[in-house]
Amino acid sequence: MILVDLDALASCLASPACLVTQTTSGLIIGMLLFLVAVGLTLIFGVLKVVNFSHGAFYMFGAYFAMTAYQLTGSFALAILSGAVGTALLGLIFERAFMSRVYGRDVLMQLLVCYAFVLIFDDVVRMIWGPEFRSMGMPAAFQVPPLFIAGGVVPPYYLLLIGVALAAAVVLGLGLARSRIGKVIRAAAHNPGMVSALGINTGLIYGGVFALGGMLAGLAGALAAPVRSLTPGMGFSVLIESFIVTVIGGMGSILGALIGALLIGLIRSFGSLGFPLFTEGLMYLFMVIVLVSRPTGLFGKEVA
């Protein structure tokens, strides 16, 4: 049994082929994680609630995409319905339930979220059945992988990284530059004042929650062709998203991006050098960040 295999890691770092393969592999894991984590961090930054049911949106995104793909055969429509469907679900969930527990005890918020983790899992079980499902890779991407500098890169993963990056850029610029972005930032900073200025904060809150849900749904839809779909599939993704937000700093979008990419790279290179300790490496890194910077790498941006 090999515990630490530094030779494998060193020889990989010396080979461009291996570097390309492992880096893209880390980017894929990281970018999907980013989409889920950024929604989590956004909701926390503005609404000040930790959405423990966030993994369910990832799950619904995947199931919506699978169903749309089976009905229409169009991959674009599948992705779209994954994102739009979860956005709607997020809006309804926030208006009907989460909005009632703002400012309440954290325990209360946690209980409501946890209840919905169970409810959402059972809803999926009722609609799509308890057994695992698979969406299948669209024909357009059933092609041999690309070889870049000798490294293996599947074309589908290029699309995946591209879409996630685009989402990151749009989100970042939108929040920094647009009028709505300004209002959202203001609402995060001082909701009372924003409300007094005649802006409907309920709408802002609902919108932010829907946006967060949509990003998680997008991640689920993008992951659906390569990951098996089961009730409860959101759980492990949620745990990793929490690690990402803790590392990056709760409420920081840049932090979520950097944190997610770091986790992705730790997983891909860690599995070479520390085959039995890849999971542990993630947590170890989180501990180091927490000890040296308790607010996370970009924690200062927390409003």
Partner: peptide, 21 residues
């Protein structure tokens, strides 16, 4: 080469690429 992914792990990309290497 040996890989031991967790039971019910959602993503195996790093394991796949490790085996390819």
């Amino acid at each position: 080469s040996e890989s031991w992914p967790k039971l019910f792990q959602p993503d195996y990309t790093e394991v796949v690429t490790k085996i390819l290497q």
